[in-house]
Design a protein around this nucleic acid. Sequence first.
DNA 1: AGTTATAATGAAAGCGCTATCATAAGTGAA
DNA 2: TTCACTTATGATAGCGCTTTCATTATAACT
Lengths: 340, 340
Amino acid sequence: MRNENATIYDIASDAGVSIATVSRVLRGETNVSPATREKVQAAIDRHNYRPSSIARGMISKSTHSLGIVLPKLLNPHYAMIFSGAHEEARKMGYSMSLFPWSSIDTRAYDPATMLVERRLDGVIVCVEYLSPDHDEQVLLSLRELKRFMPVVLIGCVPPWYDFPAVSDNNAAMMRQIVAYLVSLGHEKIAFIGGVQEDKDPLRRDVGYMEGLRDARLPYTASYRVYGKGTATAGEMALGNMLDALKPEYWPTAVIALNDLVAMGCQAEARRRGLVMPDQLSIVGCDDLFCAPYLCPPLTSINTHQQRTGARAVQLLISGEEKKETVEWEMIERGSCARIK
Amino acid sequence: MRNENATIYDIASDAGVSIATVSRVLRGETNVSPATREKVQAAIDRHNYRPSSIARGMISKSTHSLGIVLPKLLNPHYAMIFSGAHEEARKMGYSMSLFPWSSIDTRAYDPATMLVERRLDGVIVCVEYLSPDHDEQVLLSLRELKRFMPVVLIGCVPPWYDFPAVSDNNAAMMRQIVAYLVSLGHEKIAFIGGVQEDKDPLRRDVGYMEGLRDARLPYTASYRVYGKGTATAGEMALGNMLDALKPEYWPTAVIALNDLVAMGCQAEARRRGLVMPDQLSIVGCDDLFCAPYLCPPLTSINTHQQRTGARAVQLLISGEEKKETVEWEMIERGSCARIK
DNA sequence: AGTTATAATGAAAGCGCTATCATAAGTGAA
DNA sequence: TTCACTTATGATAGCGCTTTCATTATAACT
């Protein structure tokens, strides 16, 4: 029933030529007589023959397949990156396999073993900061991985990571958002970030601080809180912030680390009966597909994540060892109101 | 700089043994003397050696990698399936690559070539009905693909598809929703489906019709409309339906094909100033992560898509040739109101 | 006709492993 | 001491391709 895959020998003997000739036809070499070519092609068609990329890979030392490592496919942010990367890879003739984050950061079984054993031609790693320990571990694993195959990073990559990378210009994005909110008359602007990290100057909270400075607004410690970057974390973070402040000090605008956090903030604000956007403006980041369907529709930053993924694949394949940032675009939707 | 991958010969000569012995150590065979084993292991560690799964695959005829074909990773529905499938595959020691839908339904370049050339151990295909022509084409391609490797389908698989498959029990789900809405007093219940298809008795619109019959409600043709299954399509579908009806005939409840469509319906209803859920109840399906954050929070059906993906992998690996349906669960969230 | 360049093909090595078979060394019973 | 039997190891043949090199057959020159 199943087609026991034909081999080049089957084709050769069927066509009455040597395997070398079949190979020439397969690879489109020109020095084959038309008559022979035709015979061989006929045999190929008859058997539905497809050369094994496995066997080819043994010789060429290239599997024409890439890997992508990311924390969580269910987060649409990563799905978008994957989607863009995958499409670009396909265009370049590569396939792409997904690997769980644990293939990098676990010492339980030698990290990266899965990736290395499969002899991928390269791997894209979406990094995520979780803790100083974790960060150190990840950097070690990445360095080790890099000894085996090209690695390109995506995400918030600190300057001291010696890897080619494609990142968002986080600081600039945040500064733009702060400026935008200031232009609407906001002065009490809060920031709900992800895991706190203090050394990396490229992170979003740094941009938030810079934005405040640009606008000569005072920095209020209780306006800057951290969470895990999820919707639930956003709810809790905003809840705790408001609980800790007298209502007259409540921020009039919240900048959320990403749209998930923003969604959580909306939920929490609604629970407290705050009218949005009048009593609370919220800005997200990532521009998830659901942003236009939230209440109010969420103003967000389109970070062109598919383009990010695609660009990472280009760097990976070309071997360029550089760090790049991608353009972004603020999408106004109405979750921010002018302060009267 | 880069580690030119060590081979089994490097290890053998470094450890002063034959490659056969190294291979025995690698595969954990017992008939190796402890002293030798130790020597070999030391050499392996010294070189950071990882056996090539490519070379292994040449012999074992198994790549230990699976494929998944789906229309659109950006649709969280498919991301959830992929996520579940991927995790299960990893547990079983397989890697998983994503392939675009075009690898199945294009005749431009021989379909499935990418899949076959890579000698995958099996592939999961998420099918989507688009048109009769497309459907026929897909079935042909799938049959051809099956000659080369095990195939398991996910999605709305018609009875005449002779493939192992994991599907939702669409009809039963829809009947449950209709019954639920009826129990809230609704009588004018609309259904916004995906692409219309008339032969397959397992589709959601059939369940909707059955649900009406269960409740002895009349079927109103203008309450059943079709679209493309996206949020935008949902907006348009509901808009057209309401435009075509006098307000006194407007449905009091809408069953959406999925949460995306439901999101679109909410947007359209809001645009028309309909108060939800009082003037319009909406039920979705798929229970996307954003469902709880919509306004009102969307009542939906959790179709356990990760479990679906995982189960498909199990069927693929075990080779069981059966069709299965997965359990589901209605999640009430408040987008449906009782009719006074 | 004789020599040389050119085109078309085949034979065979090798990619990095596994698996089979052969060989060598060690053990205990007759 | 010899024989059968186990245990540890090596030599080697593939797996399905690509690639190099050698070998023809054919055309193009003196």
